[in-house]
């Protein structure tokens, strides 16, 4: 092709295609709406799991190998984790040939989602093996406490400084898809560093308070990656822990 043709080609056609950040955040917003409606509905019928105050006497053990659990977990991943992937998705989109932009961004996002699904299933399987009841407040409180401790680790802080480096993104083709997948894995690794204990807490149930507190803490840290010993996420997680506490110490 000639240079003029190339320039014409690379010059963006002004079509109303929103940047990745817009539709990913929109997807996340939809997920939040779905989860909130679900939680409210559960509250109305007396399901305390929605609020996080769970009474685990007489509650069935968690079974992650059901469509309901997988769907609920996936929606939660979209709600909480997709916003964390936006900066990397924007970088992938800008590195791609125009004709490959959507495919590479979607591949990167799908990798993040699938990895979280795999981790969720793995942790939930452990919980199932340990006969942890669905919505167990003790399980959730334990993991939130671990999240608070993990948050104060200097090693975690320095990992967060350094773990966001993306690999070279091939602008198209099979290499492009592969590199977008690797970028997704890098994004997932960072998200996991930020909030894997909170996510582990939620495999047994994602009450609104736990989900909102965990999300805001993770988003806050993502927006303040170089803050040293930032009290905000710790206070948020501690508040979630206090909310969970009554259901654990005085069940029933």
């Amino acid at each position: 092709m000639t240079l003029d043709q190339a320039v014409r080609w690379v010059r963006p056609v002004r079509i109303p295609l929103p940047p990745p950040a817009t539709w990913v955040l929109a997807g996340s917003l939809v997920a939040w709406v779905v989860l909130t409606v679900e939680a409210l509905a559960a509250t109305r019928v007396g399901g305390a799991a929605a609020t996080g105050h769970v009474h685990h006497h007489g509650v069935a053990a968690l079974d992650p190998w059901t469509g309901t659990w997988v769907l609920g977990w996936s929606v939660m991943v979209a709600a909480m984790m997709w916003p964390l992937a936006v900066p990397a998705l924007s970088a992938v989109g800008r590195a791609a040939f125009p004709g490959w932009r959507v495919r590479l961004v979607a591949t990167c996002l799908a990798t993040v989602t699938v990895l979280w699904l795999a981790v969720g299933l793995a942790v939930a399987s452990v919980a199932h093996a340990l006969a942890v009841p669905a919505g167990s407040g003790g399980w959730q409180l334990g993991w939130v406490a671990a999240a608070v401790l993990w948050n104060r680790s200097a090693w975690r802080t320095r990992l967060l400084w350094r773990c966001s480096r993306l690999p070279a993104i091939a602008p198209g083709g099979v290499r492009g898809l592969a590199s977008a997948s690797v970028a997704g894995a890098v994004v997932w690794r960072r998200c996991a560093l930020l909030c894997v204990p909170v996510m582990a807490a939620m495999v047994v149930g994602h009450g609104v308070v736990l989900m909102v507190g965990g999300s805001v803490a993770a988003w806050w840290e993502a927006a303040h990656p170089r803050a040293w010993r930032d009290p905000v996420p710790v206070l948020l997680l501690a508040a979630v822990g206090l909310w969970l506490l009554p259901g654990v110490v005085a069940p029933g």
Partner: peptide, 28 residues
């Protein structure tokens, strides 16, 4: 905007990089 890419280049090696083909036509 990216118009071409090549992979696995070692210093000293010359590489012809083809520009990506596209079909959108805009003014010169």
């Amino acid at each position: 905007l990216p118009v071409a890419a090549t992979f696995g280049l070692t210093s000293g090696e010359e590489r012809d990089v083809p520009l990506e083909r596209g079909a959108r036509l805009l003014p010169d």
